[in-house]
Design a protein around this nucleic acid. Sequence first.
DNA 1: CCCCGCCCCCGCCATT
DNA 2: CGAATGGCGGGGGCGG
Length: 304
Amino acid sequence: VAFLDAFSEANRVVGRGSHYRVQVVSGSSDRNLMSQDGFCIQAASAYRNCLRVADTLIVAGSGNSPATKEDDGLLAWVRWQASKSRRIAAISGGALVLAACGLLDGRKVTTHWQFRDLLAARYPSVAIEQDVIYVRDANLYSCAGATAGLDLALRLIEEDLGTTVATEVAHSMLLPSRRSGSADQISAALRAQAVPETPISSLLEWLPDHLQDDLSIQALARRSAMSPRNFARIFRRQVGQTPAKYVENLRLQAARFLLESSDCTIENVAFLAGFGNCETLRRLFLRRLTITPGRYRATKSAGK
DNA sequence: CCCCGCCCCCGCCATT
DNA sequence: CGAATGGCGGGGGCGG
């Protein structure tokens, strides 16, 4: 449910004329949704009564009922919505519902490890990605678990409204920052279950401690014993971002952290985060956060 | 602020 | 034949 907050928070950030209108629809005959935690949510409507087409269709899977009982009416409704909507997202076990609709054949998706085997066995043509917390395949998004749904929501917001808004939403929701799709920040429990060791995953663990190194594609490819072209492809497929973008995000994150929580000079921050000089850092901040590093630090410290 | 060179990204094709 | 890999080149964005 937490990912719903991200959209309302985005509305608050962009101000009046709210951008998102969220409608919760139940997949049952009545409006009640029973969560596995023992509380009950009342949706705005049951799916049968929802004839409005969603711009973004988000299908959330519940933990206790793996959504595998074939409710033909529900599947037909989802198929119909999916055919009309601009993009589709599956959260956790929601992938099973979309798969049952035949919407995942040949598509790249991820799901909670708890459903992975079932999904793979029942729908062999689905391309399951294992070492990401969320994945995007064209207009199809999916994520591994409920909390990853939050990251997915931030991703959608970022695509709709830009990085600045997404970052602010993440900030106001007390998240350290937008997590990337990669596995490096996945929870320990999920990591233990879901991550087979790959060259990319070990690279992702190595990266944050080596921001000052040469992190060009060639250098990273050499480190991973791949050709540059192939490395870039594999990386993008597994991580969901291009290598340079990912590195840029890491460095930006590091710089923000240093500005907020240390009194290093800006030049030192730039150096520590792996930027050649402070001009590069400055331009990145202006591009991504529309604020200079110095002002960023000032507003952060002035706020407290 | 501008400009040039570099590198990233991606489409495309050849090879295995 | 299809999937995986490597190489090439252009276009565009970014850094110096």
